[in-house]
């Protein structure tokens, strides 16, 4: 069986996988990181989004062996060691941006990347477009959009430029 070496949430792992094993299967089945969810089999829902070398990636659409040498961050790796939540996690709680919680890990991982990729600011329409790849059946998105807008200044350390709002 092929082996893959990768870093997950700061920890190095060497794991035996089948050639067809998906990254999400490696995370859930081999490493027990069940915070990353599987909501579909057509790469449409975004429940499985993780960061691969800092970029949000649907972990169901990538083979485990493709992650050789990569650094992966999952929802479990976001909070600080002392339990302090990432500002995006905080804002999701603050704005009631989750109900059943199933889409939440993927939603949070996507949202963080979205905010990072938009240092110039994010309008509501841009946030909604940026969430195209993530389905939520519970919230109607209203509060997710609010949470992301609220996380932007916390992540960038200053208020959102007025023009973007």
């Amino acid at each position: 069986m092929p082996q893959v070496s990768l870093t997950v949430n700061g920890k190095a792992h060497k794991v035996e996988v089948e050639g067809r094993t998906l990254l999400v299967e490696l995370l859930r089945e081999k490493l027990g990181l069940t915070g990353t969810h599987v909501g579909c089999d057509t790469s449409q829902c975004g429940a499985c989004v993780v960061h691969v070398d800092g970029n949000s990636t649907k972990s169901c659409s990538m083979l485990a062996i493709q992650a050789e040498g990569c650094s992966i961050t999952t929802i479990e790796g976001l909070a600080k060691a002392d339990g302090t939540l990432h500002p995006m996690q905080e804002m999701f709680r603050e704005h009631h941006a989750l109900q059943c919680g199933f889409c939440t890990p993927g939603m949070v991982m996507s949202a963080i990347d979205l905010v990072k990729m938009h240092p110039q600011g994010l309008s509501e329409a841009e946030i909604r477009e940026g969430l195209e790849g993530n389905l939520c059946r519970c919230t109607g998105y209203h509060n997710i959009v609010k949470a992301i807008a609220a996380a932007w200044p916390l992540m960038h350390g200053h208020a959102m430029p007025a023009a973007a709002e």
Binding site: H37, L85, L98, G101, F102, T104
Partner: peptide, 21 residues
């Protein structure tokens, strides 16, 4: 009041059936 259950869901520590071993 903010939700009590959110802590575990936001940390990826929910316990859904498929998460059980």
């Amino acid at each position: 009041v903010k939700r009590k259950e959110d802590g575990r869901f936001l940390a990826g520590r929910g316990n859904y059936v498929d998460d059980m071993r």
